[in-house]
Design a protein around this nucleic acid. Structure first.
Lengths: 197, 197
DNA sequence: GTCTATAGGCAGATAGAC
DNA sequence: GTCTATCTGCCTATAGAC
């Protein structure tokens, strides 16, 4: 029965990922996966004991990859050269798992499964604190979070766009965000309305 | 029976928003909303004819606010001063509707309702093309998308953090991203591995 | 490996009493 | 306005034939 693909199992994973991204993990249904493949729900349950195993199987390798990267990463995260290298390798990983980045960035329901959400949360926290450095205070934390927005948003919001040619531009952008100075406070004045000089 | 709040209707909206953000629109259930308020599903359906009306009622004023802002916005989006003003007013709106920004940023299932998703998509497209300017090509488009990541990610990923003191820092960051130059291509060379000079 | 059939649960939504 | 009771439908998951 093999028409040309490796395995039914792989096809299930492929379709499941597509549907999870399009509708969200909880909203997408096993029946829908099965229908698209011209098989029945029961056939899917032969390959995966539960719906959650689809999610875990899809997401596992990506999260492993990130963990690996974070372990290897230079712990000198707050020196400019170290930060740049860190951002570069991270962006590489994100690009290689772009569809999963879309899933985890836009679907709360997949993050609400502790084995997934906890890992993502921990990884993000580690990465952000490496970028923020040990003594940056709140401002550095905000900058780190914002800098990751530079890397991730284009991956998620420009799905058709091949970003290979723009990687170093994005890295430069993230680096710029990490270096933005915090203007001195002016207590008593309206704090969030900035004057256009 | 009024303990101190205005109305049951408002309480329903309040709880619904909280649950939609926490679990995603489709995953959250009317029963859950009702339970939290100590009433029944039927009571909720007295105030709102369908589940979707909860979403639309919550999201409407925010989207109206954005539409209004975009209409008022100076069409000189690609001059630095105009861009800055645009980003400032946009960030203001996002901060005022921060919880809804969280919902729409992290829950695909709410965006899959056309009256919501279409508006959000259109607004984002308009804003991004204003920021990108008429003649920037793909690079400017990518920069615009990335710049919005600077504004939005901290709102969504630092929910506890009051960002009032960091607004101008975020604006500066977004402006910096919009100004990052695109390095000349070097065809034939590995395109996405950037050398650390 | 894939099927049919079905169990069991919970969702959104409605009818009608109070 | 809120209730109880109920309808209908889809979901995850399982049992057992082929």
């Amino acid at each position: 029965m093999r028409v040309r693909h490796e395995d039914t199992r792989d096809q299930i994973l492929e379709v499941a990922l597509e549907l999870f991204v399009a509708e969200g993990y909880e909203t997408a249904s096993i029946s829908e996966v099965a229908e698209r493949l011209g098989i029945t729900k029961a056939a899917v349950y032969y390959h995966f004991p539960a719906k959650e195993d689809l999610l875990l199987t899809l997401v596992g390798p990506f999260l492993d990859h990130v963990d690996e990267m974070l372990a290897t990463a230079v712990p000198t995260g707050h020196f400019p050269a170290g930060r740049r290298k860190l951002l570069e390798t991270y962006l590489d990983v994100l690009l290689k798992h772009r569809t999963l980045v879309c899933l985890l960035s836009r679907d709360v329901s997949s993050l609400n499964h502790p084995p997934v959400g906890q890992r993502v949360k921990d990884q993000t926290r580690r990465l952000e604190s490496m970028l923020a450095g040990p003594r940056g205070g709140k401002a550095a934390e905000v900058r780190a979070v914002a800098a990751l927005g530079v890397l991730r948003r284009p991956l998620v919001h420009l799905p058709q766009q091949d970003l290979s040619d723009f990687c170093s531009m994005l890295i430069d952008g993230a680096m710029a965000v990490l270096s933005v100075p915090l203007p001195r406070k002016r207590p008593g004045k309206r704090p969030q309305q900035a004057a256009v000089s």
